[in-house]
Amino acid sequence: MAGTEHLTVERVGATLVLTLNRPEAKNALSLPMLVGLHDGWLAADEDDTVRSVVLTGAGGTFCSGMDLKTLAGQGAGDDRYRDRLAADPDLHWKAMLRHHRPRKPVIAAVEGHCVAGGTEILQGTDIRIAGRGAVFGLYEVRRGLFPIGGSTVRLPRQIPRTHALEMLLTGRPYPAEEAARIGLIGHVVPDGTALEKALETAELINANGPLAVEAVKASVYETAGLTEADGLKAELDRGWPVFATDDAKEGSRAFAEKRPPVFRRA
Rank of each mutant, 00 (worst) to 15 (best):
E10W: 02
A58R: 14
Q123F: 03
Q158K: 08
H100C: 06
G124D: 05
Q158L: 08
N27H: 03
S151L: 05
I148A: 15
V54Q: 09
G149Y: 00
H100V: 02
K249G: 05
T19M: 12
L195E: 02
T170R: 13
G251E: 10
E222F: 05
V141P: 05
G124V: 03
L34H: 06
M66L: 15
A109R: 05
S219N: 08
R238H: 06
P160M: 02
P260F: 07
I185E: 03
D47C: 11
V17Y: 08
A218Q: 08
T49K: 14
D237A: 11
A218V: 10
T201V: 15
A130N: 09
I107G: 02
L71S: 09
K217F: 11
A180W: 00
V53C: 11
T125W: 01
G183L: 13
D88Q: 08
E140Y: 01
L97R: 15
K94D: 02
L29W: 03
V153W: 01
I148L: 07
A116P: 00
A72W: 00
L184A: 03
R51F: 07
K249V: 15
S219F: 04
V189P: 03
G133T: 08
T152S: 02
T56E: 04
R157K: 15
N206E: 15
V53D: 13
E120H: 03
V115E: 03
Q74M: 15
W240E: 12
L97V: 13
A25E: 10
A25G: 00
